[in-house]
Structure formats: C-alpha cells, structure tokens
Amino acid sequence: MNVVAGATSCPVAAPRIRAALVFGVLAILVAVVLVANVGIGSVAISPAEILEMLRRPGDDSIVGAIVWKIRIPRAIAAVVGGAYLAVSGLLLQVYFRNPIVGPFILGISSGATVMVSLVMLTSLTVGLTVLSPFMTTLAAFAGAYGVMMIVVAVAARVKNSVTLLIVGLMMGYLCGAVTAVLTALAEKEKIKGFVLWQLGSFSGFKWSEIQVLLVGGGLVLVLIYTLSKPLNAFLLGEEYAASMGVPIRRFRVLILLCACALAGMITAAAGPVAFVGLAVPHMARLSFATSDNRVLIPGACLIGALVTSLCDLVARMLLSPVELPLSAITAFFGAPIVIGLLLKRRVEM
C-alpha cells in the first residue's frame, strides 16, 4: 500500500506509477517507429544517416531530399494524424457515453468527404486553388460539423446507442451517395486526385500543411487538455456533471467543435482514415487501466501516433512498391480489436 506524506493512505498513487511507466514505454516506441518510418523505404537510410541529415535541413543531396521532402513530412503527418483522430474519438466516446462511436462511425468522416468532394470535383474553387490546403481543411471541417450536428440532434431525441449508430451509418450512406453523384459528374482529371485522397494516405504532405496541422491542432489539443476535468465529470452523465458545476451547454458545444476540428483537419489532409478514432481510446483505457481523461488524452495521442505510424509503415512496405490504402490497414487492425474488446465486455461505458 502506498503511504503518502501526511500518513493519508491514497489509493491514487499506484495508478500514477503505472501511468508514468506506460507513458515512458509508449514514448520510446513512438520514437522508434518514427525513425523506422524515416529510415525504411525503397531507399534504406540508416539511423546514423538520419541523424546526419537532421543537422542539415534543406540538404540538396538525393538522401537529403528523400528525408526532408518525403519521409519526414509523411512520418510527422502519420504521428499527428493518429494522435488527433484518437483524441477526437475519445471526446466523442465521452460525449455520447458510448464505447462504439468514433469519427468514422458517426459519419463525420463521410461528411468531410462530401464537402471535400465538392471542393475537389466541382468548379466551385476556380481561382481559389491557391488557398488549398486551407480550402479543403475548411470544407472538411464544415462537412464534419454539419453531419455532427445532425447526429447530435438525433441523439438528443433517442438515447439508444444502437439507434445512434444506425443514424451515423445512414448519414455515411447519404454522404456516400452525394459523393458518388459528384464523382459521376466530375471531369476525369479531377477524379483521380479525389479517388487517391479517398483511399486515405499520409503521403505527399507539404511542410505548409504540416505547419497548419501542428499549430491549429496543437492549440485544440491544449484546449482539450484543459477540459479534462469537466470531461471526467461528464463520465457520470450530464445531470451529475451539471450538479457539480460544469457549464453543460458551453461545454457540449466545445467538445463537439474540438472533436470535429481534429477529425476534420486530418480527413481534409489525409483522407478518411478508419478505426483509429474508435479503437485507440479503448487501447488507451486498457493500457492505462483508467477512465481519467487527464491520462487518456495524452495517452490516446501517443497510442494513436504509434498505431497510425505502424499502419502507414505496413501500408507502404507490405507489397512495396505498390502502396496499400491506409484505411484498409487500419481496418484490418482495428476491427478485430474492437470486436474482441466488445466481446470481452471490458469496455462498457
């Protein structure tokens, strides 16, 4: 038993040690996978070379170009994308008090897809293409938020989680239908880009996009972390949370805005990536053995980063030089995990 200063036996100390250990292990793993993602590829680069290159940004050699223009942006994008999607899923699971929601399942990704298809496939953006990546990001965010609002409106009427799930699925189908119609009407040259985007990939990230992701998403993450206390109170349901002094209305809007911002941002840049937002929060809960969001928010970031980086590595290397769609890999890995967790009933909320 842990006896803390003041002789107060405090049952919270043991989980803290565990959390610190898990955080340490995860951080090391993420670093390892990050290095692997930069090093492994059609041109293998040793860790020593990577270190060397890190000291010379903008190096013009072939290796330098590969590291700085292709590998590092992609590795960072995978880390950031995984982290954001995981936190977005965590927020939604707390908000709906439902373990089987995530940005993809609730149709948020589909909503983003519709808006992005509007931007990418139609001539709406003629003359505005300069503004991309901001245009696609904004479009994705708008789409994500639009679908989210519809799902929330329905969720307010029906508390049943299965109904909520079906509504999300239906929203996904509707959005898919709109996207299909737009694709049928679009010019051929535009379709290829859109289809590639729709498969989901962290390749081809520009540094400007990375900056937007890091700064914008970073601010949202900080905001979310400051919300971790009301998020914890929210685990007891809205009424208890309100009775403890959580400003419910403001807080609800904030959670949804943050979740949509993170998921929308990643969907805009990398395309819809399935299952990370759904599976990673559960993995975080189990690894840290807690529902405390002060631990889970950074925890989900690390696990999301780790899982997505690994999936990206597999997508690139499994059938190299053919690159597999990222969503396929995340689904292969995520779906069995979710089914297993639900069957074991260890993640009921």
Partner: peptide, 13 residues
C-alpha cells in the same frame, strides 16, 4: 436515479 457506470473507476476515484 440515473444509472451511472463509468468504466475503470475505483470507488475512491
């Protein structure tokens, strides 16, 4: 009277 069942919480937490 609402059912609350926050997962993975010790009674102390």
């Amino acid at each position: 009277t609402n059912k609350v069942a926050p997962p993975l919480f010790s009674v102390y937490e």
